[in-house]
């Protein structure tokens, strides 16, 4: 069974390096013989078994003995695991081609969330559970970027400290530039509780909004490396031509926290479970989008 694993692993490595091709050929020969109900005569299985056991002997003789004794069973286990992984990957690839997301129509992230904190209702910027139906929120009274009577409305729920929201930001900015005049963009704060200062950054952006500089501050805020110190927020305010004292006062007194909380409430109502979540016309997408994919969706919505 180890030969099947070897065929896949060394077959892939063999694409890049000639030194693995001979082993891949041996593995293929071995697999072919087993499929045709003949004995594998290359000795590859024995070699791999010995090399793995030999390596383990240096660290743990007991583990080495276990692996040596049950090598065939272990090989079976990993082979089944490999086949299952390959099947799952193929399913993901199919979904990606068909729906632009490896989780299929229900959306969600394709990657493991390395930023996961405590898993509360919306504790992370990656999904923690299967997506329920998202409800597009009513944002009539919310501030926005773009013309009032734009053809398409884009709503983003995002968090300044979420890696995925930050990853999505360049594509968002490019879309707004490309479709200037055609798109009305709403950014709704959905700070992740597990992330340090995530809500504070949202409050700071809203404080900038109090002085009419929300969108420039918002864009600059995404360019700062996290964690962001209060002093950096003040410096940014100064760079944006804000009244820094008023900004500091607003920020320290959390004067705009109620605006952020309203966004969070809208997010909860909408069923947001991870950031960024986009409502692009009638299309909903969870997770960062490449500019190419984003553009494709925008075009579809504009043409529909």
């Amino acid at each position: 069974m180890i030969c099947i694993l070897a065929l896949v692993v060394f077959g892939i490595l063999g694409i890049f390096s000639v030194s693995y091709r001979a082993i891949a050929k041996e593995a293929f020969d071995c697999v072919f013989r087993r499929i045709t109900l003949r004995k594998c005569t290359t000795g590859l299985d024995k070699r791999l078994k010995s090399q793995i056991t030999g390596k383990l002997m240096k660290r743990s003789p007991k583990t080495a003995k276990f692996v040596y004794t049950y090598f065939e069973a272990i090989s079976w286990f990993f082979t089944i695991l490999l086949i299952a992984s390959l099947a799952y990957s193929a399913y993901g690839a199919y979904n990606y081609v068909m729906f632009g997301n490896c989780n299929g129509q229900q959306g969600g992230f394709c990657v493991y969330d390395v930023f996961a904190g405590n898993k509360t209702e919306y504790s992370t910027c990656a999904p923690v559970a299967a997506a329920g139906d998202l409800i597009k929120p009513e944002v009539t009274n919310h501030s926005f970027f773009g013309p009032e009577n734009a053809e398409l409305e884009i709503i983003e729920f995002g968090c300044y400290t979420c890696e995925y929201t930050r990853k999505a930001q360049p594509a968002v900015e490019k879309i707004l530039e490309t479709y200037q005049g055609k798109v009305k963009f709403y950014f709704l704060d959905f700070p992740i509780p597990a992330h340090e200062k995530s809500k504070e950054l949202a409050i700071a952006a809203e404080c900038a909004g109090q002085q009419g500089k929300y969108w420039s501050y918002y864009a600059r805020l995404f360019r700062l490396e996290t964690p962001v110190a209060d002093e950096q927020l003040y410096q940014l305010a100064e760079q944006q031509g804000l009244n820094v004292d008023a900004f500091r006062q607003c920020y320290l007194d959390r004067e705009t926290e109620s605006i952020v909380d309203e966004d969070i409430a809208l997010g909860k109502y909408a069923g947001i479970y991870g950031t960024p979540t986009f409502f692009i016309g009638n299309h909903t997408h969870v997770g960062p989008l490449s500019y190419k994919d984003f553009k494709k969706i925008v075009e579809n919505e504009l043409n529909s």
Binding site: S50, Q51, T53, G54, M57
Partner: peptide, 13 residues
């Protein structure tokens, strides 16, 4: 034990 197995395990050491 197969002689190649012995040699390969020794090689690892």
């Amino acid at each position: 034990m197969d002689s190649h197995e012995i040699a390969l395990m020794l090689d690892q050491q």
